[in-house]
Design a binder for these strands. Structure first.
Lengths: 210, 210
DNA sequence: CATAAATACCTCCACGCGGAGGCTTTTCTG
DNA sequence: CAGAAAAGCCTCCGCGTGGAGGTATTTATG
């Protein structure tokens, strides 16, 4: 969960749906901002369409004019929140691929509710009839894995990472560990998220550092 | 997710709630069995109290006589399904701790709907007002990590696992990776769950096997 | 075997949810 | 400036959970 620069399509109106009268786009953004507020205050299941609508002073059905479903709205909220995080973080580019991941994870758990939202949406994406979230996460996982695979391969070529493992598999493993550990941390904050994830750096170090 | 022999409390009536006239216990089990069927057929959100009740030929309120809430019922369903899996698997005891985990993960994804149920419940456990699932997973994660930590420490002492890493952290990492990878696999079955998880064995092998 | 308690349900209700359909107003475009 | 498209919003619907209050039925026990 969370890997910098995987979604740089500023143009694609993944947010919302139909045409763009520019006023509608602004309204969409307004809805998302409110939704984020509601979300951080009341959690995932407290974020009903009705409650967001209440915060905006309209009826819940108004929101469905901008988003096809609650699920789609929540996905948009996640994208929006994450995009903020990433852009406030664009200059940093640590040496190792694993460090990028560690940093993203740590920043994730600092945004209240973000991990919870992520979990909720992942669970939703596994439902048979889910559309928005399934498409989103399928694509997302693939993009994140691909980016990380590339970085790992580069690190291997540079001699920074042992080369007796398949970078694609390690990438999947790291993403999985990062996701899973954020959840464990939410339930048990005594876990040292940063140091635990850093273990990967040790495990992936080349055999003889001289 | 899924690690053998973490819950051998056959006596504790985590399933359901009140007294045990022995007939009631049987009925509870019957409900859980039906619930699992409904779940594998209709997914997590299709498993409403009403639908399970329908499958049993009773009203939804009857179920609330045996379980305090839908959430508690779902937790019981998960425990039940997992207990089945584990008992059908009790004889096996692979050499390495990591292999135990790999096996559990592979068997998990073979039970239809189990990973989805797990994800749903984990997401629920992060909700502010969740009770049953939060208690269950907090305890569960701790138990699984503890068991795995112990196994890893043993492997380290036996020279089967490198000893320059903290077994407790590696345990958390492995559990996280296993959980996360099962989800990735559900969304992208071309991922080789078994081999990817096995990467840990390579990463954790001692430096010089000689 | 009587009887009190626990069990095993049911019906009905309160409330919240997401979503479909419809209606008016605003805005862009030829 | 016409009219199509988009925006903006509401009312109504069905389904969900949880619970209150009721009534048979079963069970343990003296």
């Amino acid at each position: 969960m969370g890997y910098v620069d995987t979604m740089t399509s500023d143009e694609a109106p993944v947010i919302g749906r139909s045409g763009s009268y520019a006023k509608g786009v602004a309204r969409r953004r307004e809805i998302l901002d409110r939704a984020i507020e509601v979300f951080t205050e009341r959690g995932a299941d407290g974020t009903s369409l009705r409650r967001i609508a209440q915060a905006l002073g309209v009826s819940h059905a108004a929101l469905l004019h901008y988003f096809d479903s609650r699920e789609q709205l929540l996905v948009a909220v996640y994208e929006h929140a994450e995009a903020r995080r990433d852009e406030a973080n664009a200059q940093h580019r640590p040496a190792l691929a694993t460090d990028v991941m560690v940093r993203a994870a740590v920043q994730n758990v600092e945004v209240p509710g973000l991990v919870q939202l992520y979990s909720t949406l992942v669970a939703a994406s596994l439902e048979a009839d889910s559309t928005a979230s399934k498409a989103f996460f399928t694509h997302r996982f693939e993009a994140v894995r691909a980016a990380l695979t590339e970085d790992l391969a580069r690190d291997q070529a540079a001699g920074l990472v042992r080369d007796d493992v398949d970078p694609a598999r390690i990438a999947a493993l790291i993403v999985a560990a990062s996701d899973g550990l954020q959840i464990q941390w939410l339930l048990e904050p005594s876990i040292d998220l940063q140091e635990t994830l850093r273990s990967f750096t040790t495990l992936l170090a080349p055999p003889q550092p001289s």
